[in-house]
Computed example of a mutant assay.
Amino acid sequence: MNILVTGGAGFIGRWVVKRLLEDGHNVWLLDNLSNGRKENIEEFLYMNNFKEFIYGDIKNRELLSNLYKNKFEICYHLGASINVQDSLDDPEITFKNDVIGTFHVLEECRKCNTKIVFMSTCMVYDKANDEKGITELHPTKPASPYAGSKISGESMVLSYWYGYKLPAVVIRPFNTYGPFQKTGGEGGVVAIFIKNHLEGKTLNIYGDGMQTRDLLYVEDCAKFVVEAGYSEKANGKIINAGSGRDISINNLAKLIVQSEKQIKHVQHIHPQSEIEKLLCNYVKAKDLLGWEPKVSLKEGIKKTEEWIKNHPDLI
């Protein structure tokens, strides 16, 4: 197939591109490198079925219109502003990228009947204490402009499914980690902790550290993303992906460092947007896609640590 990946030079995006290329598809990649990096995709640039890297923005309608002349069967729409704190500091940028940008992509998909796989986030959910995990029916709560913009994008994508019968699926991966993740900024808690540990620095934990995360290894996440695009049964659906296990940030830190002297609790930068318990129920992904995570947290941390050790120029 001819496939477009927006945000394909980002952390998850580059793994999605890798899997699509391995599956033999022709892949075009669009990224403005605001969060992604050219270094993430260098190994793909000379592969026969890697068609083009386009440095550009999803808000550029003329660029998108010309790009869609390639008659894509699927668009994996991963391009977005993803930082919670940035969205609180400047909500307009996040709104323009995650809502208006998504609308522009949707319009081109509609013209060409291109299936869209919309990357949302577990950050749209309200807090939960259910030990069976958060299902797709769990209440949402836009506790940041980032979450609000993603919920808006989800609604737009599903409206094109219901209104135009455009093939579309909304995916909500939980906290993804692994090689190529940046070691600074939002969402990279595993990578940040590992890098600080290797450098003998303090591991700073926001608040009391009792908040939990369901940590999904990036190659498991990429397989989920790709399979959602392949599956007709996924059309019109919202689908979670996670490991099905959560761990507190305190225990995650202890898993990475041997000495608790290296751990420090600091004031939370955005406590109003914190979700206290994130535990994924991925039964729907298993039923619809036959997908299950394969990599354990212990194995994933080991792989990530090895990558960080061997790629100091990319972290």
Rank of each mutant, 00 (worst) to 15 (best):
L78T: 02
E73T: 13
K111M: 09
T102R: 05
D89R: 14
T94K: 04
K115A: 01
V99Q: 07
A80W: 00
N70S: 13
N113G: 05
Q85S: 10
E73N: 14
V99I: 15
H104E: 11
L106M: 10
I74W: 02
D86W: 12
D98S: 08
I93T: 15
F72S: 02
C112Q: 12
I74L: 03
H104K: 10
L78M: 13
F103M: 12
I116F: 08
I74C: 06
K111L: 14
Y68W: 13
T114Y: 04
D89E: 14
N83K: 13
D86Y: 14
C112R: 11
L78Y: 07
E92Q: 15
I100D: 10
K69I: 02
C109F: 01
K71H: 10
I100T: 10
K71M: 04
N97Y: 00
I93L: 14
F72A: 02
V99M: 11
V105R: 01
C112W: 07
K111T: 00
G79H: 04
L106N: 02
D98H: 02
I82G: 05
E108D: 10
I116L: 11
F95P: 08
L78A: 06
D89F: 07
E92G: 09
D98M: 06
D89Q: 13
E73K: 15
T102D: 03
H104F: 12
E108C: 08
H77K: 03
T114M: 06
V105P: 03
D86G: 09
H77V: 11
N97H: 03
N83T: 12
G79Q: 02
S87T: 09
P91M: 07
G79P: 07
A80R: 06
V99N: 06
S87G: 14
K71T: 01
D98V: 08
F103R: 07
L106K: 03
F103T: 08
I116Q: 01
H77T: 08
V105M: 03
I116R: 02
V105Q: 01
C75A: 15
V84G: 08
K115I: 00
K71C: 04
T114P: 04
G101I: 06
V105S: 03
N70Q: 13
S81M: 11
E107S: 13
